[in-house]
Write a protein that binds this DNA or RNA. Sequence first.
DNA 1: CACCTCAGTATCGTTGCAGAAACCGAGGGG
DNA 2: CCCCTCGGTTTCTGCAACGATACTGAGGTG
Lengths: 112, 112
Amino acid sequence: MFTGCAPVTAPIRIGDKWTAKIIRCLQDGPRRFSELKVPLTGITPKVLTESLRAMERDGLVTRTAHPGIPPKVVYELAPLGHSLVGPLDTMCAWSRANLPQVLSARESYESR
Amino acid sequence: MFTGCAPVTAPIRIGDKWTAKIIRCLQDGPRRFSELKVPLTGITPKVLTESLRAMERDGLVTRTAHPGIPPKVVYELAPLGHSLVGPLDTMCAWSRANLPQVLSARESYESR
DNA sequence: CACCTCAGTATCGTTGCAGAAACCGAGGGG
DNA sequence: CCCCTCGGTTTCTGCAACGATACTGAGGTG
Protein backbone atom coordinates (compact mmCIF):
# COMPACT_ATOMS: atom_id res chain seq x y z
CA MET A 1 0.00 0.00 0.00
CA PHE A 2 1.27 3.46 -0.82
CA THR A 3 4.04 3.22 -3.37
CA GLY A 4 7.35 4.38 -2.08
CA CYS A 5 6.11 4.21 1.46
CA ALA A 6 6.21 1.51 3.99
CA PRO A 7 3.63 -1.16 3.30
CA VAL A 8 0.56 -0.84 5.48
CA THR A 9 -1.75 -3.61 4.46
CA ALA A 10 0.43 -6.63 4.86
CA PRO A 11 2.80 -5.95 7.71
CA ILE A 12 0.76 -3.47 9.73
CA ARG A 13 -2.69 -4.61 8.79
CA ILE A 14 -4.64 -1.37 9.01
CA GLY A 15 -6.69 -2.15 5.96
CA ASP A 16 -8.22 -5.35 7.22
CA LYS A 17 -11.77 -5.73 8.36
CA TRP A 18 -11.45 -5.18 12.10
CA THR A 19 -8.25 -3.34 13.09
CA ALA A 20 -9.58 0.15 12.44
CA LYS A 21 -12.85 -0.60 14.22
CA ILE A 22 -11.02 -1.93 17.25
CA ILE A 23 -8.89 1.20 17.45
CA ARG A 24 -11.98 3.36 17.36
CA CYS A 25 -13.57 1.28 20.11
CA LEU A 26 -10.51 1.81 22.28
CA GLN A 27 -9.86 5.47 21.55
CA ASP A 28 -11.88 6.73 24.51
CA GLY A 29 -10.30 4.46 27.06
CA PRO A 30 -9.39 0.89 27.92
CA ARG A 31 -11.94 -1.86 27.46
CA ARG A 32 -12.33 -5.46 28.41
CA PHE A 33 -12.60 -8.30 25.92
CA SER A 34 -16.35 -8.61 26.33
CA GLU A 35 -16.79 -4.83 26.10
CA LEU A 36 -15.19 -4.97 22.67
CA LYS A 37 -17.19 -7.93 21.47
CA VAL A 38 -20.55 -6.18 21.90
CA PRO A 39 -20.04 -3.03 19.78
CA LEU A 40 -18.13 -4.99 17.14
CA THR A 41 -21.30 -6.70 16.02
CA GLY A 42 -20.66 -9.92 14.20
CA ILE A 43 -17.10 -10.54 15.30
CA THR A 44 -16.41 -13.98 16.72
CA PRO A 45 -14.19 -14.39 19.78
CA LYS A 46 -11.62 -16.20 17.69
CA VAL A 47 -11.25 -13.37 15.20
CA LEU A 48 -11.24 -10.75 17.95
CA THR A 49 -8.49 -12.64 19.74
CA GLU A 50 -6.45 -12.95 16.56
CA SER A 51 -6.85 -9.28 15.76
CA LEU A 52 -5.94 -8.14 19.27
CA ARG A 53 -2.91 -10.42 19.34
CA ALA A 54 -1.67 -9.02 16.03
CA MET A 55 -2.19 -5.48 17.24
CA GLU A 56 -0.41 -6.24 20.48
CA ARG A 57 2.46 -7.71 18.52
CA ASP A 58 2.73 -4.52 16.48
CA GLY A 59 2.66 -2.29 19.53
CA LEU A 60 -0.75 -0.76 18.79
CA VAL A 61 -2.47 -2.00 21.95
CA THR A 62 -1.43 -3.28 25.36
CA ARG A 63 -2.97 -6.31 27.00
CA THR A 64 -3.21 -6.48 30.78
CA ALA A 65 -4.53 -9.61 32.42
CA HIS A 66 -5.79 -9.19 35.97
CA PRO A 67 -5.62 -12.58 37.62
CA GLY A 68 -8.68 -13.77 39.49
CA ILE A 69 -11.93 -15.52 38.94
CA PRO A 70 -13.70 -14.57 36.76
CA PRO A 71 -10.75 -13.49 34.61
CA LYS A 72 -10.43 -9.88 33.59
CA VAL A 73 -8.36 -8.71 30.66
CA VAL A 74 -8.07 -5.08 29.73
CA TYR A 75 -6.98 -3.79 26.35
CA GLU A 76 -5.73 -0.26 25.92
CA LEU A 77 -4.35 1.78 23.06
CA ALA A 78 -0.59 2.11 23.19
CA PRO A 79 0.89 5.48 22.11
CA LEU A 80 1.44 4.04 18.65
CA GLY A 81 -2.22 3.11 18.45
CA HIS A 82 -3.26 6.57 19.61
CA SER A 83 -1.17 8.12 16.86
CA LEU A 84 -3.35 6.28 14.36
CA VAL A 85 -6.58 7.86 15.55
CA GLY A 86 -5.93 11.08 13.64
CA PRO A 87 -5.20 9.48 10.26
CA LEU A 88 -8.16 7.19 10.80
CA ASP A 89 -10.39 10.20 11.40
CA THR A 90 -9.16 11.66 8.14
CA MET A 91 -10.15 8.55 6.21
CA CYS A 92 -13.41 8.41 8.12
CA ALA A 93 -14.25 11.99 7.21
CA TRP A 94 -13.51 11.27 3.56
CA SER A 95 -15.75 8.26 3.74
CA ARG A 96 -18.65 10.17 5.25
CA ALA A 97 -18.24 12.99 2.76
CA ASN A 98 -17.89 10.89 -0.37
CA LEU A 99 -19.82 7.69 0.11
CA PRO A 100 -22.95 9.09 -1.55
CA GLN A 101 -20.96 9.95 -4.65
CA VAL A 102 -19.39 6.51 -4.76
CA LEU A 103 -22.79 4.90 -4.47
CA SER A 104 -24.30 7.06 -7.18
CA ALA A 105 -21.30 6.39 -9.44
CA ARG A 106 -21.83 2.69 -8.88
CA GLU A 107 -25.53 2.96 -9.56
CA SER A 108 -25.05 4.69 -12.91
CA TYR A 109 -22.36 2.13 -13.75
CA GLU A 110 -24.72 -0.75 -13.06
CA SER A 111 -27.37 0.67 -15.41
CA ARG A 112 -25.10 1.19 -18.39
CA MET B 1 -13.88 -0.30 8.54
CA PHE B 2 -14.30 2.72 10.80
CA THR B 3 -17.13 2.08 13.21
CA GLY B 4 -19.98 4.49 12.88
CA CYS B 5 -18.75 5.64 9.51
CA ALA B 6 -19.44 4.42 6.08
CA PRO B 7 -17.60 1.21 5.39
CA VAL B 8 -14.45 1.67 3.40
CA THR B 9 -12.92 -1.75 3.02
CA ALA B 10 -15.76 -3.68 1.53
CA PRO B 11 -17.75 -1.26 -0.60
CA ILE B 12 -15.06 1.25 -1.49
CA ARG B 13 -12.01 -0.94 -1.19
CA ILE B 14 -9.38 1.57 -0.20
CA GLY B 15 -7.73 -0.78 2.21
CA ASP B 16 -6.90 -3.44 -0.33
CA LYS B 17 -3.48 -4.11 -1.69
CA TRP B 18 -3.44 -2.06 -4.88
CA THR B 19 -6.08 0.70 -4.91
CA ALA B 20 -3.98 3.18 -2.99
CA LYS B 21 -0.89 2.47 -5.08
CA ILE B 22 -2.81 2.95 -8.30
CA ILE B 23 -4.14 6.30 -7.12
CA ARG B 24 -0.63 7.41 -6.32
CA CYS B 25 0.56 6.31 -9.76
CA LEU B 26 -2.18 8.37 -11.36
CA GLN B 27 -2.01 11.47 -9.19
CA ASP B 28 0.40 13.28 -11.52
CA GLY B 29 -1.55 12.67 -14.70
CA PRO B 30 -3.21 10.06 -16.87
CA ARG B 31 -1.41 6.82 -17.66
CA ARG B 32 -1.86 3.88 -19.94
CA PHE B 33 -2.37 0.32 -18.81
CA SER B 34 1.21 -0.68 -19.51
CA GLU B 35 2.53 2.48 -17.85
CA LEU B 36 0.79 1.41 -14.68
CA LYS B 37 1.99 -2.16 -14.82
CA VAL B 38 5.66 -1.22 -14.67
CA PRO B 39 5.81 0.87 -11.47
CA LEU B 40 3.36 -1.49 -9.73
CA THR B 41 5.96 -4.18 -9.49
CA GLY B 42 4.50 -7.59 -9.01
CA ILE B 43 0.96 -6.87 -10.11
CA THR B 44 -0.45 -9.25 -12.70
CA PRO B 45 -2.55 -7.92 -15.57
CA LYS B 46 -5.58 -9.74 -14.25
CA VAL B 47 -5.39 -8.07 -10.86
CA LEU B 48 -4.65 -4.67 -12.41
CA THR B 49 -7.67 -5.00 -14.67
CA GLU B 50 -9.89 -6.03 -11.79
CA SER B 51 -8.68 -3.17 -9.64
CA LEU B 52 -9.12 -0.57 -12.37
CA ARG B 53 -12.61 -1.86 -13.19
CA ALA B 54 -13.64 -1.63 -9.54
CA MET B 55 -12.24 1.89 -9.29
CA GLU B 56 -13.99 2.92 -12.47
CA ARG B 57 -17.22 1.50 -11.13
CA ASP B 58 -16.83 3.59 -7.96
CA GLY B 59 -16.07 6.77 -9.86
CA LEU B 60 -12.44 7.02 -8.75
CA VAL B 61 -10.90 6.76 -12.22
CA THR B 62 -12.04 7.21 -15.79
CA ARG B 63 -11.18 4.79 -18.55
CA THR B 64 -10.79 6.05 -22.11
CA ALA B 65 -10.19 3.56 -24.90
CA HIS B 66 -8.67 4.96 -28.10
CA PRO B 67 -9.55 2.54 -30.87
CA GLY B 68 -6.78 1.41 -33.17
CA ILE B 69 -4.08 -1.14 -33.46
CA PRO B 70 -2.29 -1.54 -31.12
CA PRO B 71 -5.01 -0.61 -28.65
CA LYS B 72 -4.48 2.34 -26.37
CA VAL B 73 -6.35 2.78 -23.11
CA VAL B 74 -5.81 5.74 -20.84
CA TYR B 75 -6.73 5.84 -17.17
CA GLU B 76 -7.13 9.10 -15.31
CA LEU B 77 -8.12 10.10 -11.80
CA ALA B 78 -11.68 11.36 -11.57
CA PRO B 79 -12.34 14.23 -9.13
CA LEU B 80 -13.42 11.69 -6.52
CA GLY B 81 -10.10 9.94 -6.91
CA HIS B 82 -8.21 13.21 -6.59
CA SER B 83 -10.01 13.91 -3.33
CA LEU B 84 -8.47 10.74 -1.93
CA VAL B 85 -4.89 11.85 -2.50
CA GLY B 86 -4.86 14.00 0.64
CA PRO B 87 -6.14 11.34 3.04
CA LEU B 88 -3.81 8.85 1.43
CA ASP B 89 -0.87 11.15 2.07
CA THR B 90 -1.91 11.29 5.70
CA MET B 91 -1.82 7.52 6.02
CA CYS B 92 1.41 7.40 4.07
CA ALA B 93 3.04 9.91 6.39
CA TRP B 94 1.97 7.88 9.40
CA SER B 95 3.41 4.79 7.81
CA ARG B 96 6.75 6.40 7.10
CA ALA B 97 6.92 7.88 10.58
CA ASN B 98 5.89 4.80 12.52
CA LEU B 99 7.01 1.73 10.64
CA PRO B 100 10.30 1.52 12.55
CA GLN B 101 8.42 1.46 15.84
CA VAL B 102 6.08 -1.23 14.61
CA LEU B 103 9.00 -3.33 13.50
CA SER B 104 10.84 -2.91 16.78
CA ALA B 105 7.66 -3.71 18.71
CA ARG B 106 7.33 -6.86 16.67
CA GLU B 107 10.93 -7.78 17.22
CA SER B 108 10.73 -7.50 20.99
CA TYR B 109 7.47 -9.47 20.88
CA GLU B 110 9.13 -12.29 18.97
CA SER B 111 11.90 -12.60 21.54
CA ARG B 112 9.65 -12.85 24.58
C1' DC C 1 -24.76 -31.10 42.03
C1' DA C 2 -25.78 -27.92 38.45
C1' DC C 3 -25.12 -23.59 36.60
C1' DC C 4 -23.15 -18.99 35.89
C1' DT C 5 -19.27 -15.73 34.36
C1' DC C 6 -15.17 -14.40 31.55
C1' DA C 7 -11.70 -14.91 28.23
C1' DG C 8 -10.52 -17.24 25.46
C1' DT C 9 -9.34 -22.42 22.34
C1' DA C 10 -10.23 -26.07 19.09
C1' DT C 11 -12.02 -27.68 15.02
C1' DC C 12 -14.07 -27.22 10.96
C1' DG C 13 -15.72 -25.07 6.71
C1' DT C 14 -16.33 -21.05 3.50
C1' DT C 15 -14.95 -17.20 0.89
C1' DG C 16 -12.34 -14.17 -1.74
C1' DC C 17 -7.87 -12.28 -2.93
C1' DA C 18 -3.95 -13.05 -5.32
C1' DG C 19 -0.72 -15.11 -8.50
C1' DA C 20 1.18 -17.89 -12.60
C1' DA C 21 0.68 -19.10 -17.09
C1' DA C 22 -1.50 -19.40 -21.34
C1' DC C 23 -4.29 -17.31 -24.74
C1' DC C 24 -6.74 -13.63 -27.77
C1' DG C 25 -7.17 -10.46 -32.17
C1' DA C 26 -5.37 -7.45 -35.60
C1' DG C 27 -1.79 -5.16 -37.76
C1' DG C 28 3.29 -4.37 -38.57
C1' DG C 29 8.24 -5.97 -39.05
C1' DG C 30 11.97 -9.23 -40.22
C1' DC D 1 5.87 -17.52 -41.92
C1' DC D 2 6.59 -16.27 -37.48
C1' DC D 3 6.88 -13.18 -33.98
C1' DC D 4 6.09 -8.69 -31.80
C1' DT D 5 2.91 -5.13 -29.54
C1' DC D 6 -1.13 -3.71 -26.54
C1' DG D 7 -4.80 -4.44 -23.38
C1' DG D 8 -6.69 -7.37 -21.82
C1' DT D 9 -9.36 -12.55 -20.73
C1' DT D 10 -9.36 -17.28 -19.18
C1' DT D 11 -8.14 -21.09 -16.31
C1' DC D 12 -6.06 -23.14 -12.53
C1' DT D 13 -4.33 -23.03 -7.95
C1' DG D 14 -2.84 -21.67 -3.21
C1' DC D 15 -3.46 -19.21 0.86
C1' DA D 16 -5.01 -16.28 4.43
C1' DA D 17 -8.92 -14.18 6.51
C1' DC D 18 -13.23 -14.83 8.09
C1' DG D 19 -16.87 -17.28 10.37
C1' DA D 20 -19.97 -21.01 13.07
C1' DT D 21 -20.10 -23.94 16.67
C1' DA D 22 -18.61 -26.24 20.55
C1' DC D 23 -15.72 -26.51 24.41
C1' DT D 24 -12.36 -25.27 28.38
C1' DG D 25 -10.88 -23.91 33.36
C1' DA D 26 -11.73 -22.27 37.93
C1' DG D 27 -14.23 -20.44 41.32
C1' DG D 28 -18.68 -18.47 43.11
C1' DT D 29 -23.77 -19.05 43.64
C1' DG D 30 -28.32 -21.50 44.36
